[in-house]
Simulated assay, not measured.
Amino acid sequence: MELDIKEIQKRLPHRYPMLLVDRVLELVPRERVIAIKNVSINEPFFEGHFPHMPVMPGVLIIEALAQAAALFSFPEVSGSDDAGQDTAYYLVGVDEARFRRPVVPGDQLRLEVEAERISRVMCKYRGKALVDGQVVAEAKLMCAIRSLSD
């Protein structure tokens, strides 16, 4: 399954400047996802990180991986406009994060995330971000799923 930006926005609550997934190339619900983030000089964080040598903050690469993971973690990945409206998805843990090289304007991040365990309240993943086939970042992620009605 592939998703364009309209389908991604149906599944994620994030919007500019915090939506960090532009397209999904492959999605297997509750198993794995391969997504793309195009890194542009117009990103608001480049103004201050760093003006003389723009580098995408590592924490935002991790956030992009977590957003990609959210796209395949819910059973209601039906694409309906109200999918996930009563559910919050929080990044609650990052382990073994490694950053191999800077990500700069013009790079295209390929976000590859696989589920290690998904339950109704907690999910664990292994993710990596690549540019031109080379790993630029990787981490184990843990996310909590909470009902907004609680």
Rank of each mutant, 00 (worst) to 15 (best):
F50C: 12
F50M: 13
F50E: 11
P51D: 10
P51F: 11
P51A: 10
H52G: 14
H52T: 15
H52D: 15
M53G: 12
M53H: 14
P54D: 10
P54T: 11
V55W: 11
V55D: 09
M56D: 05
M56W: 05
P57F: 07
G58H: 08
G58P: 08
G58D: 10
G58Q: 08
V59Q: 03
V59K: 05
L60H: 02
L60F: 08
L60W: 04
I61E: 03
I61W: 02
I61F: 02
I61C: 05
A64E: 01
A64L: 01
A64G: 01
L65R: 01
L65C: 00
L65A: 00
A66I: 03
A66M: 01
A66Y: 01
Q67D: 09
Q67M: 09
A69R: 04
A69W: 04
A70V: 09
A70I: 08
F72P: 11
F74G: 13
P75Q: 03
P75T: 05
E76V: 10
E76C: 08
V77R: 10
V77Y: 06
V77P: 04
S78Q: 08
S78T: 15
S78I: 07
S78M: 07
G79N: 10
G79Y: 11
G79M: 10
G79A: 09
S80P: 06
D82Y: 13
D82W: 11
D82Q: 13
A83W: 10
G84W: 06
G84F: 09
G84N: 12
G84D: 05
Q85M: 14
Q85S: 15
T87P: 01
T87Q: 13
T87K: 13
A88E: 12
A88M: 13
A88H: 02
A88P: 03
A88L: 14
Y89M: 13
Y89H: 12
Y90Q: 01
Y90G: 01
L91C: 01
V92G: 00
V92P: 03
G93A: 06
G93E: 04
G93P: 02
G93T: 05
D95H: 14
D95L: 07
D95T: 11
E96F: 12
E96D: 15
E96Y: 13
A97E: 02
A97V: 06
R98I: 12
R98S: 13
F99I: 10
F99S: 06
R100Y: 12
R100I: 11
R101Y: 07
R101I: 10
R101N: 09
P102F: 11
P102L: 12
P102M: 11
V103I: 13
V104D: 03
V104C: 12
P105Q: 01
P105A: 00
P105K: 00
G106R: 02
D107Y: 04
